[in-house]
Design a protein around this nucleic acid. Structure first.
Lengths: 211, 211
DNA sequence: TAGATTGTTAATCGATTAACAATC
DNA sequence: TAGATTGTTAATCGATTAACAATC
């Protein structure tokens, strides 16, 4: 559609628009102006209009935006209208936490299997999702089309496992391991480095002047 | 020290520098040039020098940067040289995952207590960290100096709990609930919205052209 | 000293905000 | 129609990169 290059800054904001629109929808709000939304979201109305217009003219002069329509359209832009098959590699606390989080399924992210090195977890299942041994991973990927691999394992294993999933045809990695992954340019990596997030908070505690 | 305003863009990069320097240190590397580091980190040398010079001249012409010194200094900038008392509110999978993550302790983040609504968790402890009932939270905060509250609970409770911790004198909130918190301006919030992270990945899967 | 590399200024690039004509 | 509000262009602001004099 829009052929212009969308910056990551904009992409970063899209899910937040989606969340706010979802809440408005739940509250039965039918239409909203960029100004009204900007007040709620604490951003500028200009930014909202600029962001949305990268993807098309979703609004109408004198009216604003239809909440339901815009919500649906942003959902499509975010690829939430198609199903994504996911596996979680690392069935520790964090992996299990993600497996138990049912909201992902609602958005089309279907968790097909988990993998772990720990033989004690062999054969168990979490919310119906089976835990397999890491040795089966490569074979499993050959037999099943998996879009996203979630890496919730120690950084020492992350690099090797990333290689396996890339070879297995996975397009995208959601990386919770505390290391950067170097993968071919057609494989996407989204990092969630929790310790870095906590350090930013710590920085701001140390450097914020208080009255 | 440096009186100029540090942008959040720079702060966002600091923990990554810290991680790379920590790894260099582990590998026995004594000194490194901005160019050498830039290649490893896949950023420009210019950016590294600009970033660091916001906080002082840590390098030396013709030599580069002393790894250990720079690592220590960035640690100080990030506030990792002082202890932070933490509580985790919400002892579900994610809360327990964070409680079990011992690396936080190494960086001076000491988890003092957890809180939950579930009476079944009453009296148990995770890695020595006691789980208390949410009713005790307000009283606990009056008796203990807590710097950071981690919110790993459903969004329906997050707003109310945020009020309680703010009233209890907590300076900073690490928010994993899927909602924005509105707190007084002297209270910091660092959001970790996992579902938004996953949507960004999904967007990029849908919109990346592949050869 | 000569070579290397920083610290820092200047140039460029990109993102955000403001403004307003178009139009519902 | 008049009023409201978008879509979009232009202006501003900030962040990144380039360049190089300073200096170890």
């Amino acid at each position: 559609m829009a052929e212009r290059k969308i910056s990551q800054a904009i992409i970063r904001r899209l899910p937040r628009y989606y969340r706010y629109l979802g809440e408005l929808l739940e509250n039965g709000v039918e239409r909203i102006s960029s100004l009204d939304l900007s007040v709620r979201m604490k951003v500028t109305a200009s930014q909202i209009r600029q962001d949305l217009n990268n993807f098309g003219g979703f609004g109408q002069q004198g009216y604003g935006y239809n909440v339901k329509y815009l919500y649906t359209e942003i959902g499509k832009i975010l690829g939430l209208d198609v199903e994504h098959n996911i596996i979680i590699i690392g069935a520790g606390n964090l992996g299990q936490a993600l497996a138990n989080y049912t909201n992902f399924e609602k958005r089309g992210f279907v968790i097909k299997s988990m993998f772990d090195t720990n033989p004690r977890l062999h054969g168990i299942s979490i919310r119906g999702i089976p835990v397999r041994m890491i040795e089966e991973l490569s074979d499993y990927l050959n037999k099943n089309k998996i879009d996203i691999a979630v890496l919730t394992l120690p950084k020492t294993n992350a690099v090797d496992v990333a290689k396996i999933v890339v070879n297995g045809g996975v397009k995208a990695i959601w990386n919770f391991a505390h290391t950067d992954l170097h993968v071919p340019s057609d494989v996407l990596v989204e990092n969630v480095h929790l310790s870095e997030s906590l350090m930013r908070l710590s920085y701001n505690i140390a450097n914020t002047k208080r009255g």
